[in-house]
Design a protein around this nucleic acid. Structure first.
Length: 423
RNA sequence: GGAGAGAUGGCAGAGUGGUUGAAUGCGGCAGACUCGAAAUCUGUUGUCCUGGGUUUCCGGGACCGGGGGUUCGAAUCCCUCUCUCUCCGCCA
């Protein structure tokens, strides 16, 4: 969420920047300002009254110690009279704080200045691209046909056992999953990220901290009996390790990585978008998370993009890196790069990674701060990215590398898979 | 799942109604000693909200797991929730 001091000191800037995300912030900002000034006035009054109460209580204590009970009783009555006022003010303050919080939580993050103008995905900007486009024959098959032909993925069994979007990987297909996960994790560790294995279920505070709650609750699977959410990405548990934490400035950056299964309800998706591996309810992903100093967070973002770029290069896939425009960015992000790979048989670009700087948006929600040399605390910047999400990588590897002898794997995967071609 | 114990500042650990934001120790920071370090000594050391001055300043308030209550006054008493530990049961 945005910080109250920012809104207080520069409401027009907030409104203006959120307009670039095509969000009309004016009504919310104005309400925030009004409730905030009322709240502060209320607090001042409450604090004054409480100071009196505290004063009286101290005097009562002294009088009692001296055995001057009658005088003490008189002061007690004065204090009791103040108490009702304090309680009323207290109640008002709590209400006001709740309202302000509700309002603040509805405001998206401000886009960075580097974010391109635009409303939809069509306005995104291709930053750079690489790799060579596959030369496939007319008879090239989409990955779902290839997966069936080589016995790599059993969609039907998944449908029966769970439902659509929960496939089984089998044989070389399962082995390929494991190979990719290990390759990605090894690469992340080599880049200085500490490997974690996170819980797959998280509580509501955690889901709130990274911004999944309250607005994206329909995208998460929810376990009623225990009030827990299945994670849509390892970002959620990883970043929340640092919820309510103050880190020392010299300990930044903090770099975390984890493999996890990810669960998404994907309500509202349909058609070719959900065919085969294109969009699943459960999928595997290696995530990288970084907590960094505000001055360094944008160079950190570039580093993370480079890291992901090296992965798709090693996988020998044609790719492009895209900077999302204001209208296409997520609620919590200040700047997002997507990495897409070209999937030859389907003849379409598929998003395999999304790398974002959230600046202080998540930190303010989860009270993640760092302490500078002078001892002051400031919200840290948080970033994360997929490095990488597996299903669309698998789809693209299968489609682009198909040939008469089978499906070739890129060299980087040979030691991990234990084979170089799927036959 | 059953029974019991507990949750205090970065850590350890006192504190059962009255200047207690909280003893003591460790750690951290600053200073003294030292060529330097160790040891020793001295001082200092939490977070958040808020008023005023407005770079280091001065005040008010809140916070001893979360929430609620009793009281003039609660870390201390009561209720409730969560979590941790020990024992029993079950189990990968």
């Amino acid at each position: 969420m945005l910080g109250l001091p920012l809104i207080r000191s520069n409401p027009e800037l907030v409104i203006q920047k959120l307009a670039r995300k095509h969000f009309d912030a004016r009504p919310v900002v104005e309400q925030v300002l009004q409730h905030d000034s009322e709240r502060r006035a209320g607090q001042t009054r409450r604090d004054q009254l409480l100071a009196q109460v505290n004063q009286l209580s101290r005097q009562v204590g002294q009088l009692m110690a001296q055995g001057r009970k009658a005088e003490a009783d008189e002061l007690k009555q004065q204090s009791t009279a103040l108490k009702q006022q304090v309680q009323d003010l207290e109640h008002q303050l709590q209400q006001q704080e709740a309202i302000i919080h509700e309002l603040l939580v509805r405001l998206p993050n401000l886009p960075a200045d580097a974010v391109p103008d635009g409303k939809t995905a069509a306005d995104n900007v291709v930053v750079r691209s690489g790799g060579t486009m596959p030369q496939l024959s007319q008879h090239a098959l989409p990955h779902w046909d290839l997966a069936a032909h080589y016995g790599l993925i059993d969609f039907e069994a998944g449908n029966k056992v769970t439902g659509a979007g929960f496939p089984f990987y089998c044989g070389a297909g399962a082995r390929l999953q494991r190979a990719l996960i290990n390759f990605f994790l090894d690469q992340a560790v080599a880049a200085g990220y500490t490997e974690y294995e996170p819980p797959l279920l998280v509580n509501a505070d955690t889901a709130f901290g990274t911004g999944q709650l309250p607005d994206k609750d329909q995208q998460m699977y929810y376990v009623n009996a225990d009030e827990l959410y299945l994670i849509p990405t390892a970002e959620v548990p990883l970043t929340n390790i640092y919820r309510d934490v103050i880190v020392e400035e010299q300990d930044l950056p903090i770099k975390l990585t984890a493999y996890s299964a990810c669960f998404r309800r994907e309500a509202g998706s349909y058609g070719k978008d959900v065919r085969g591996l294109n969009r699943l309810h459960q999928f595997d992903k290696v995530e990288i998370v970084r907590i960094d100093h505000p001055e360094r967070s944008y160079s950190a973002l570039e580093e993370m993009v480079d890291q992901v770029e090296r992965l798709v290069q090693q996988l020998e896939l044609p790719y492009r890196i895209i900077k999302l425009c204001g209208g296409d960015m997520s609620f919590a992000s200040a700047l997002t790069y997507d990495v897409e790979v070209y999937c030859g048989a389907q003849q379409r670009w598929l998003e395999v990674s999304s790398i974002s700087n959230f600046e202080t948006f998540q930190s303010l929600r989860m009270k993640l701060r760092y302490r500078d040399k002078s001892g002051k605390t400031h919200p840290a910047h948080t970033l994360n990215g997929s490095a990488l999400a597996l299903p669309r990588i698998v789809a693209t590897l299968l489609e682009n590398n198909q040939g008469p002898e089978g499906i070739r794997l890129p060299a980087c995967l040979h030691p991990y898979a234990g084979f170089d071609t799927i036959r």
